[in-house]
C-alpha cells in the first residue's frame, strides 16, 4: 500500500473535463495530508499530460482501443495500472465513465467505494467522505479506513482552481497492449448532439419544468407562461423521458449545461443530475409543493404553492 491518491483524468477528444481538475485539487490536498503523491491516469490523449500539472506523475497509455472512451478497455487498463501503483484512494467523477468504472474497480481491487461524494477530507490516516443519498434528501458520512478505497465525486463539489496549480509532472508512458486484446465491447461510432429546435444554453431566462407538471397536456399551461416571459421552455430528465418535450430542452448531466441569469424551476425536485446542469445560473427561483425538496437548498427563492397557480398568476403579472 502507498499513501498515493490516483485520479482518472477524463477527457473528450483530448480536451480534459473540468471535473478532472476538481478531482486533482482534492487529490493534492489528501496526498499532502497523508504524505503521498498525486497520480493522474490519462488514457488516450497523451498531449493533455502537460495540463495535469497538479499531479506529481501522470501515467499515460495509448492504444487503438483507448482512442475514444471504451468502458471495457478503460476498465482493463485502469485495473492494471492500479494493481501496479496500489494507491490508497482512487477518485472518479460520477460521469458515465465514473459509473462504469468506480464499481468495477472496487470489485476487482476489493476496495471500499463511496459514490455521489460531495465532501472529502483526511482524518488522520483515514478518509472521511460525505455523500448524497436519497436524491439529496439526506447526506451520508462514511469512513474509509482501509489500504484501498474508491470515491466517485459529484462534479462541482470541489474547486477546479486547485487542480490547475503546480509544476511539471513526471510522465510515465505505459504499454498495456497485453490486457487490451479480445475486447467484448466495441465502440462503432460517437454521435454529437443534434442542434436543437431552440438553444436553451444561450437563453438569459429559462422556465424549466419537472415531473410535477404531471402530464403532457399541462405543458401547454407553462408554455403560455414561457411565451409571456419570452423565455424558452426547458425541462428535467423525467419530462423528456416521457416524451413531453424534446431532448434538446433537457437540462442536467445527460442534457445541456445552462447558465441563465434567471432559472425558474416549476415542479422540479432537484435531483443531483439536474442540479449539475444549472449550477451556474445567477438567480434561481423554485416552485415545488414539497417543502423538503432538495431544490430549495440551491434556489435563491422558493415557493411551495401549486405550480399551475403560480404559472397562471405569473403569466397575468408579466402580461399586465
Amino acid at each position: 500500500m502507498s499513501n498515493d491518491v490516483l485520479v482518472l483524468a477524463e477527457h473528450q477528444e483530448g480536451r480534459l473535463l473540468e471535473t478532472s481538475f476538481e478531482l486533482l485539487g482534492k487529490a493534492r490536498e489528501l496526498a499532502d495530508a497523508w504524505g503521498g503523491k498525486v497520480v493522474a491516469v490519462l488514457l488516450g490523449a497523451p498531449d493533455a499530460a502537460a495540463e495535469l500539472s497538479a499531479a506529481d506523475s501522470v501515467v499515460s497509455c495509448e492504444h487503438p482501443s483507448l482512442a475514444g472512451y471504451n468502458p471495457e478497455a478503460y476498465e482493463r487498463a485502469l485495473v492494471e495500472i492500479l494493481r501496479e501503483r496500489d494507491p490508497r484512494l482512487v477518485l472518479f467523477s460520477t460521469t458515465t465513465a465514473g459509473l462504469d468504472l468506480s464499481g468495477a474497480v472496487s470489485v476487482h481491487l476489493r476496495a471500499a467505494l463511496v459514490s455521489y461524494v460531495v465532501a472529502l477530507s483526511a482524518e488522520g490516516d483515514n478518509a472521511l467522505a460525505t455523500a448524497r443519498i436519497y436524491g439529496g434528501k439526506l447526506l451520508a458520512e462514511v469512513e474509509l479506513s482501509g489500504p484501498r478505497s474508491v470515491g466517485a465525486v459529484i462534479s462541482g463539489s470541489f474547486p477546479a482552481a486547485f487542480g490547475r496549480a503546480g509544476g511539471t509532472p513526471e510522465v510515465a508512458r505505459v504499454d498495456l497492449g497485453h490486457v487490451l486484446g479480445d475486447l467484448r465491447i466495441t465502440v462503432t461510432s460517437v454521435v454529437a448532439p443534434e442542434a436543437g429546435d431552440v438553444d436553451i444554453t444561450a437563453a438569459e431566462l429559462l422556465v424549466s419544468v419537472g415531473r410535477g407538471i404531471g402530464s403532457k397536456d399541462n405543458i401547454e399551461l407553462v408554455e403560455e407562461l414561457a411565451d409571456a416571459l419570452g423565455a424558452p421552455l426547458a425541462a428535467s430528465r423525467p419530462v423528456v423521458d416521457q416524451g413531453w418535450l424534446p431532448k434538446s430542452r433537457q437540462v442536467g448531466k445527460s442534457g445541456h449545461t445552462v447558465k441563465p441569469k434567471v432559472y425558474l424551476m416549476l415542479g422540479i425536485s432537484g435531483a443531483p443530475e439536474h442540479l449539475e446542469g444549472m449550477a451556474d445560473a445567477e438567480l434561481v427561483i423554485a416552485c415545488n409543493t414539497d417543502p423538503a425538496a432538495p431544490v430549495f437548498d440551491v434556489a435563491d427563492y422558493g415557493t411551495t404553492l401549486d405550480l399551475f397557480d403560480i404559472a397562471d398568476e405569473l403569466t397575468r403579472a408579466v402580461k399586465a
Binding site: Y69, I185, V187, V190, P193, Q250
Partner: peptide, 17 residues
C-alpha cells in the same frame, strides 16, 4: 447494439458481446 450517453448529449454506439 447499445447507445451509451457520454454526457452533454453525446452518445457512443457500442457493440457488446
Amino acid at each position: 447494439k447499445v447507445s451509451q450517453e457520454l454526457g452533454g448529449g453525446t452518445v457512443a454506439e457500442e457493440e457488446v458481446q
